[in-house]
Design a binder for these strands. Structure first.
Lengths: 205, 205
DNA sequence: TCTTCAATTGTGGTTATCCGCAGTGTGGAA
DNA sequence: TTCCACACTGCGGATAACCACAATTGAAGA
C-alpha cells in the first residue's frame, strides 16, 4: 500500500564535521540508523514529507540557524520530532522551541546516553504517529472514493437520520438514499452505520 | 449540575510579598481575577481538584520549591496550567518543566504585558479543557446509570452487532436484548445506535 | 457516436428494529 | 413479608433497513 516510506533515520544536521562524525558514530554503536547533513539548507533541500525518524538539529550554524530551519520545517508540515542541540542556548530560546513543538532541547556538552535515549524516544514517538496517520490516510482514501452525493448522504446517516428523512431533505426518493447508503457502506468496508461511525469518529490528531 | 466550580483565579504562589503585591496589582489592573499564596505549602493545602484558572509559580522559594510544588500537583492530578517564574533558571530546568506539562516558563525580569498575555492564554486554555471535561463527566454520569447488563448489551451494540447476534452471545432472547437496548437509548438520551456511537466516540483528551 | 459512470426511481420481498401489552423469577431493602 | 429494581421472555404489529431485479437520464470521455 505505502509506496516508499523511507526508513526511519535520525537526521543529524550540524555544520561541524567533527560533531557529525561523533554523532554518527554514537548512533551507529547504538544501532540507531542515522544520516548526517552539513547544513540546514542541504537538509531542507533533501527533506521529503514522507520521511520517518527524527531530527537532531544544531542551533548555531553558519548560514541558516537551527531555529530558522525548524520554522521552515513547520511551514512545510514536518512531523518528524526535532531535538535541538546547542552550546549557547538560553531559557527563552528553549522555551520558544518547545512551545513550538520541538521534541527536546539539549545543551552541550550533553551526555551520550541521554541523547541516545531522547533520540530513541523520538523515533518511537514518530513511529506511533506514523501508524495513526496511516490508518487515517486509509480512511481518507476510502472517503475520497465516495461520490459527492454519497458523501452527502453519509453525513446525514452519521447524524442518525432515517432514510426517509434524508430522502426528504435531499428531495430524492427513499430508494435512491438506500442505494447511496448501501454504496457508502460497501466502499467504506463496513456493514452498518454504527461501524461507519466508529471508523470515522476516532479521527483526531 | 456543577455544585461549586470555583471562579477562575490566577493563583500567585510566591514567598516574596513584594512580588505577590506587584502581581496582584498587575492582574487587578488587567481585569484578571487573582489570588496570592505566600508559600507552596499554603497553596497545596488549599488546592482543590475542581479549581479553575491557572497558577503563576515562583521557582525559588524558602521551603518547598516551585518545581517540587509542581510535582506534587501533578501527582494530585492538577489540570490548572502552570506558569513558572524564575530569576535563576537554566535551560534544563525550563526544558524539564515544559516537558512535564508546564504551560510556560518565564525569566525575571519579565515584561508585564508578556506575563498577562500568557496568563490570559492559560486561563482560556483551562476554560476550554474544563468545557470538554464537563461534557465528558455528563456522559460518564449517564453511563453510570446503566445497569451492568445494559452496559454489556451496549458494548455489543456499539460494535454494530445485530440484536439477534447479541442475544445469541449472551444466551438470552432477542426480546430481552431489545428491552436493554431500548433502555440504553433512553437513559443515554439518544434515539439510535449511531447517535450513541457519536456520543461516546469523541471522548479523547 | 458509443461507452461509462453518477444519479435517479420503481416493485416486491426479506430481515431488523422498535414498542406496547403481559407476565415470570430473584435478590435486596423496608 | 412486602415492595421494588433488575433480568428475562413471548406475541403481534408498525416501521425502517436491506436487496435483487430492472430501468431512465445526463454528463464526461474515448
Amino acid at each position: 500500500m505505502s509506496p516508499s516510506l523511507a526508513t526511519p533515520f535520525a537526521h543529524i544536521v550540524d555544520d561541524d564535521e567533527a560533531i557529525r562524525d561523533a554523532l554518527s558514530w554514537l548512533f551507529r554503536t547504538r544501532k540507531v540508523e542515522s544520516r548526517a547533513w552539513p547544513s540546514a539548507e542541504d537538509f531542507l533541500a533533501a527533506w521529503r514529507p514522507d520521511w520517518r525518524g527524527c531530527i537532531v538539529l544544531d542551533i548555531r550554524m553558519r548560514e541558516m540557524s537551527g531555529l530558522e530551519c525548524f520554522d521552515a520545517l513547520l511551514e512545510r508540515g514536518n512531523t518528524l520530532p526535532v531535538i535541538f542541540l546547542t552550546g549557547h542556548g538560553d531559557v527563552p530560546m528553549a522555551v520558544g522551541a518547545l512551545k513550538k513543538g520541538a521534541f527536546d532541547f539539549l545543551e552541550k556538552p550533553f551526555d551520550d546516553n541521554a541523547l541516545v535515549d531522547v533520540v530513541i524516544r523520538a523515533l518511537e514517538s514518530n513511529a506511533r504517529r506514523q501508524a495513526n496517520q496511516e490508518t487515517q490516510a486509509n480512511v481518507a482514501g476510502l472517503l475520497a472514493q465516495l461520490t459527492p452525493r454519497e458523501q452527502e448522504v453519509m453525513q446525514l446517516v452519521l447524524v442518525g437520520k432515517f432514510n426517509k428523512v434524508i430522502a426528504d431533505e435531499l428531495n430524492i426518493s427513499m430508494r435512491t438514499v438506500e442505494v447511496h447508503r448501501s454504496r457508502v457502506f460497501e466502499k467504506m468496508g463496513v456493514r452498518s452505520a454504527v461501524e461507519l461511525a466508529q471508523l470515522l469518529a476516532p479521527g483526531r490528531d
